[in-house]
Nucleic acid binder design. Structure first.
Length: 364
DNA sequence: TAGGCCATCTGGTCCT
DNA sequence: AGGACCAGATGGCCTA
């Protein structure tokens, strides 16, 4: 902190916002005013001026005050004498620290400012890249952005899931897919991703109830309890309860299948999505949650989603047992704000060439 | 109010 | 010397 103060010793008015941002500088300098960060002795005069300048929130004033100390500009013996006069501190061995003349301080300050600007630019570039990454991971929201770390985790999982698909040449079961996608994600992010998939699934379920059980063709998944639930949903009573029942695993299953079904949708070209071409995860992005949510708002609030990450891709449908959905979930509840308004959330469903290849692969 | 996330500043290190 | 990169520190903002 001492070194930080040094660089701000002659800060100009352009740094005033920063000065305001660090109101504790003066206090810090009080507590450790006799040494620099690396333990080098430090001019006490500069400390006093620094404290004055920042404590009063007038960096420019501090600058002028220091600049007025012309007698300190002279280097050489005078500085040595000052050091000796400081007295009780033991002398440091090694090369003497060059006195910070006004010119050197100015240069140092300029360097620091330039370095800060570069660092800001660098971080902005990094954030921009992260924003781009957010747009191509399976779940994207304009307003509820994934955090940086969650974006990276989700992207990693997504890449892993896609490479597993390419490697095995098979459609994985939905549970494995979801597990892979959500592996290591925080609960809110898991909820968000799950919400995305579920959103996609609801409309899909409706379509399926109208179209019949076309899931049970040659390309259908291997049978497991969730497929059973899915097929049961074709019945009217099952549909009517689908939004209120806490167990919505069928929704994920259907969502997953919809991702790979590649069925054209009138809402395919969602006007909401303005990002670049996205990966081939959610080509069939139909959003019909709005009405359904309004019909049963409590359903979302009571919807709990718990995920255990015991298996990665390649786990068999038995992994479904690790996907616990219910109001008794132990990992935390899905809050209503984790399920975004449909106009704000985007599954990626662009016609990326990669998807077309994958889609052709899965349907040939 | 605590905790998470973020932007920014900063000094250190490495490389050119 | 200067730039890139990194990690630590700090404070602001937001949310549960």
């Amino acid at each position: 902190m001492r070194a930080a103060m040094l660089t701000r010793l002659f800060s100009d008015p352009s740094l005033l916002p920063d000065v305001q941002k660090y109101p504790g500088w003066a206090d810090d300098s009080e507590s450790e005013d006799s040494k620099t960060k690396d333990g080098e002795p430090h001019c006490p005069m500069a400390d006093d001026d620094l404290d004055d300048g920042h404590a009063k929130g007038a960096a420019s004033r501090a600058h002028s005050e220091i600049a007025g100390d012309d007698e300190e500009e002279d280097d050489g013996e005078e500085e040595d004498a000052e050091d000796d006069a400081e007295g009780d501190r033991p002398k440091k061995r090694g090369p003497k620290k060059r006195k910070m003349t006004q010119a050197r301080l100015e240069r140092s300050k300029l360097r620091r400012q330039k370095a800060n600007a570069r660092e800001r630019t660098r971080m902005h570039d990094l954030n921009s890249a992260l924003d781009n990454l957010r747009k191509v991971v399976p779940c994207y929201s304009k307003t509820q952005k994934l955090s940086k770390i969650e974006t990276l985790r989700l992207a990693k999982n997504y890449i892993w899931a896609l490479s597993e698909i390419l490697r095995s040449g098979k459609r994985p079961d939905l549970v494995s897919y979801v597990q892979t996608l959500c592996k290591g994600l925080s609960q809110p992010t898991t909820n968000l991703v799950a919400g995305c998939l579920q959103l996609n699934s609801r409309n899909f379920l409706t379509e399926q109830c109208q179209e019949g059980a076309r899931f049970h063709g040659p390309n259908s998944f291997s049978m497991h309890p969730y497929q059973y639930q899915c097929s049961r949903l074709s019945s009217p009573q099952c549909q009517s309860s689908s939004n209120s029942h806490p167990l919505r695993t069928h929704g994920y299953y259907s969502a997953y299948d919809s991702l790979y079904a590649g069925a054209a949708s009138p809402e395919y070209n969602s006007p909401e999505y303005e990002g670049p071409l996205s990966p081939p995860v959610c080509i069939n992005g139909n959003f019909s949650l709005k009405q359904q949510d309004s019909a049963s708002p409590d359903a979302e609030k009571s919807y709990h989603y718990s995920m255990h990450y015991s298996a990665m891709a390649g786990s068999r449908p038995s992994a479904a047992h690790n996907l616990v959905l219910g109001s008794s979930g132990v990992r935390g509840a899905v809050h209503s704000d984790n399920v975004l308004p449909y106009h704000d959330m985007h599954l990626h469903h662009d016609r990326a060439p990669m998807y077309e290849e994958l889609n052709a692969f899965f349907h040939n």
